[in-house]
């Protein structure tokens, strides 16, 4: 009698687990990114060009940008004007930003010439481009938060471009407090989140295969009534 009751409880629990939000999300994530996809120890044999290194270099640059920015944040926005260590950390922050952009742009054009959006990787391409745009915003807000002549000049020049689009009413390059908060909180959070998403998409879809110009047909999930969109 008690065994039957236990079995009923077990069945109910199993049914509940199947409906559970946490369990569903875990199964979705594990299906999309099983460990050997998330952190593979092998890669396809065609992956043998120097251009592939620029994605990893961009990540390295971003890590150093965040690291040096964090040290600057520990002491506050005026520290680097009065401390030689602060000036050196600021210099590292500046040069890591320069390298981050340099590597990212090469990575972007490399992926363009590989047509890396092929094989349902359009969203991977788009998150990369959006990350680039957000990075420009993060860089710009940093330049206008330096609290020196450069920040004064860049802010007063840039305001006209921003105002002309109507965005100046909400994004005020002359408002140091607003720009600093955007620079150290909002935009870095967006760039890091987008970069993470971009990397997960790359891992989910895998590295795009070489361009085939002689292919004939490709499996395609669609509907019976759908015509060939070519």
């Amino acid at each position: 009698m008690s065994t039957t009751k236990d079995q009923t409880v077990l069945d109910q629990e199993e049914a509940e687990l199947a409906r559970q939000w946490t369990g569903r999300i875990r199964r979705l994530l594990v299906d999309a990114l099983p460990p050997d996809k998330l952190l593979p120890d092998r890669q396809p044999s065609y992956l043998s060009s120097w251009i592939y290194i620029f994605g990893a270099l961009t990540i390295g640059g971003l890590a150093l940008v965040i690291l040096t920015g964090t040290v600057l944040a520990l002491e506050g926005p005026q520290w680097w004007h009065v401390s030689s260590i602060g000036l050196f950390v600021n210099s590292m922050h500046l040069w890591s930003v320069e390298f981050f952009f340099f590597f990212m742009v090469i990575h972007l054009w490399g992926k363009f010439f590989m047509a890396a959006w092929r094989g349902n990787r359009q969203l991977t391409w788009m998150t990369g481009v959006v990350t680039f745009f957000f990075s420009i915003g993060a860089g710009f807000t940093g330049y206008v938060s330096q609290t020196n002549f450069d920040s004064q000049w860049i802010a007063t020049q840039a305001k006209d471009g921003i105002n002309a689009t109507g965005a100046g009413a909400f994004v005020n390059a002359l408002n140091f407090g607003q720009m600093l908060m955007w620079h150290i909180v909002l935009l870095p959070a967006a760039v890091v989140a987008l970069t993470g998403l971009h990397i997960l998409m790359v891992r989910h879809k895998g590295i795009v295969t070489p361009i085939e110009v002689n292919g004939t047909e490709v499996p395609h999930q669609g509907t019976q009534s759908e015509s060939d969109p070519s």
Binding site: R118, T216, H220, Q221, S230
Partner: peptide, 12 residues
């Protein structure tokens, strides 16, 4: 389905 392969869009 099978659709015509487009080298600018598809990757096997």
């Amino acid at each position: 389905l099978q659709r015509r392969f487009n080298p600018d869009r598809d990757a096997r």
